[in-house]
Computed example of a mutant assay.
Amino acid sequence: MKLLFDQNLSRKLVTCLADIFPNPSHVQFHQLAEKTDTEVWDFAKLNDFCIVTQDADFTERSRLYSSPPKVVWLRCGNAPTNQVETLIRSGQEAIQELLSNSSIHCLELH
């Protein structure tokens, strides 16, 4: 499973985190930036992506529908990209556990 960064996150994260998460992508690369959450959800599900977002809506969707796709909810507010990168790097093990464990559907990182 690959990471798909939501529109509220910088596209720079794709290259910044490619060393620890293979083949990450961003919604803008798939013409999804202006699409609905449902369309992003369906795309992620069909293409084996885990959604990385600051949007609580995806977390709620995960609680309702389970996975796939899985969701990483970043609870860092409107932080600079380097702080978001640091948060994701510090949560690398937890994210890997999310991706590999079929009983976990959503992860919150603070």
Rank of each mutant, 00 (worst) to 15 (best):
F5K: 00
Q7R: 13
Q7T: 10
K12D: 11
L13A: 05
C16D: 11
C16N: 13
C16T: 13
L17R: 04
I20Q: 12
P22Q: 07
P22K: 08
P24V: 08
P24M: 01
S25K: 04
S25T: 12
V27P: 10
Q28W: 07
F29I: 05
H30Y: 07
H30W: 13
Q31C: 12
A33Y: 00
E34S: 15
K35M: 15
K35R: 15
E39H: 09
V40M: 10
W41C: 07
F43I: 05
K45I: 05
N47T: 09
N47L: 08
D48W: 03
D48K: 09
C50P: 07
T53R: 02
Q54A: 06
A56D: 03
D57Y: 05
F58H: 04
F58V: 09
T59Q: 12
E60Q: 08
S62H: 01
S62G: 13
R63F: 15
L64M: 13
Y65R: 14
Y65A: 14
P69W: 00
V71F: 00
V71R: 00
V72P: 07
C76I: 14
G77M: 09
N78E: 11
N82G: 01
N82L: 06
N82D: 14
V84T: 00
E85F: 06
T86V: 10
I88A: 08
R89T: 08
S90M: 13
S90I: 02
G91R: 00
Q92E: 15
Q92W: 09
E93Q: 14
A94T: 08
I95D: 01
Q96W: 08
L98P: 11
S100T: 11
H105K: 10
H105A: 03
H105G: 08
E108W: 03
E108S: 14
L109E: 07
L109G: 11
L109K: 02
H110L: 14
